[in-house]
Structure formats: C-alpha cells, structure tokens
Amino acid sequence: MNTTTTTTARHDTWERLELPGRTARTSLLDRIAMRIALALLLWSSRPRAEADRDAVRRAREREARRAELDRVRAWQRIHPHHYR
C-alpha cells in the first residue's frame, strides 16, 4: 500500500497525504540501484574496441578456412581416384 496518498470517501479522488518532517525523495538503496543500472546500460552500449573487431574477423576467417577444408575432404571421399 502506498502511504503517501490516500483516497477520500467523499470525493473519490486521490489527495496527497503530507507527512510532517519528511521530504519526498527516493531511498538510498533505490538511488544506488538506478546508478548501477545506468552504468551497466552505458557500458553495454559502448562501441567495440578495435581488438574485439580483429578477434571477430580472425574467428570468421578461421571458420571459413575450416568450412573450405571440410568441403575439400568431402569431395575427396566422394571422388578418391582423383587424388591418388
């Protein structure tokens, strides 16, 4: 239940219940959680480093070489008389 607002039976509207000596602000735990969430969001949307791009490119090249080698080996199994 939200303790900062209450309904009035007469008007059926929401009225703000002011608590004396208390300012309306976000709790410390919520502020810390929001700061961490913002930092993670910004970190995850950063541009990739050049080293990461090179690693991805090299991995794709290795996969292409493996696929080509697999095709050659498959061809050799089908047509063994061409390679003796």
Rank of each mutant, 00 (worst) to 15 (best):
R48Y: 12
P80S: 04
R84K: 09
W14N: 02
R77N: 07
P80Q: 04
R53E: 15
T6V: 12
A24Q: 15
A33I: 14
L69R: 12
L29T: 10
A59Q: 08
T6K: 08
I32G: 00
A49C: 01
R31Q: 15
L38M: 05
A37L: 03
T4C: 07
R35D: 10
H79S: 07
L29M: 04
A33D: 12
P47H: 02
G21C: 12
A37P: 00
S45A: 08
R57Y: 04
H11T: 14
I78D: 12
R10A: 14
L17Y: 10
L38V: 01
N2I: 11
A39Y: 05
R66T: 07
L40D: 03
R77V: 04
L38I: 03
R65C: 07
R25G: 03
T5P: 00
A67H: 05
T26P: 01
Y83A: 08
L17G: 00
A51H: 01
T6A: 10
R65I: 06
R77M: 07
L69M: 05
T4H: 14
I36E: 08
A39R: 05
R16E: 12
I78Q: 12
R31T: 09
D70I: 01
T5Y: 13
N2V: 10
W75F: 14
P47N: 04
W14Q: 04
R62Y: 02
P47C: 02
P47R: 06
A55Q: 08
R62D: 10
V72E: 05
R25F: 06
R73D: 06
W14K: 03
A67L: 09
T7N: 09
R77I: 01
R46G: 04
R48A: 13
T23V: 08
Y83N: 07
R66Y: 04
D54R: 15
I78N: 02
T3H: 14
R25A: 12
L69W: 06
W43H: 09
W43K: 10
R48Q: 13
S45V: 05
G21L: 13
S27M: 02
T6S: 09
D70W: 00
H81E: 13
D30S: 14
W14T: 11
A59E: 09
R65V: 07
Y83S: 08
P80M: 06
S45C: 14
R65L: 14
R46A: 11
Q76Y: 01
A49G: 02
N2T: 05
R60H: 12
L29V: 11
A24E: 15
R35P: 00
T26N: 03
L38G: 04
L28A: 15
T13K: 10
H79Q: 07
H82Q: 05
R35N: 05
A51Q: 04
H11S: 11
A49F: 05
S27C: 09
I36K: 09
I32E: 06
W43Q: 13
A37R: 07
R65G: 05
W75H: 15
A59R: 10
R10D: 10
A59S: 11
T4Q: 13
T23K: 13
H81F: 02
T13G: 01
Q76W: 03
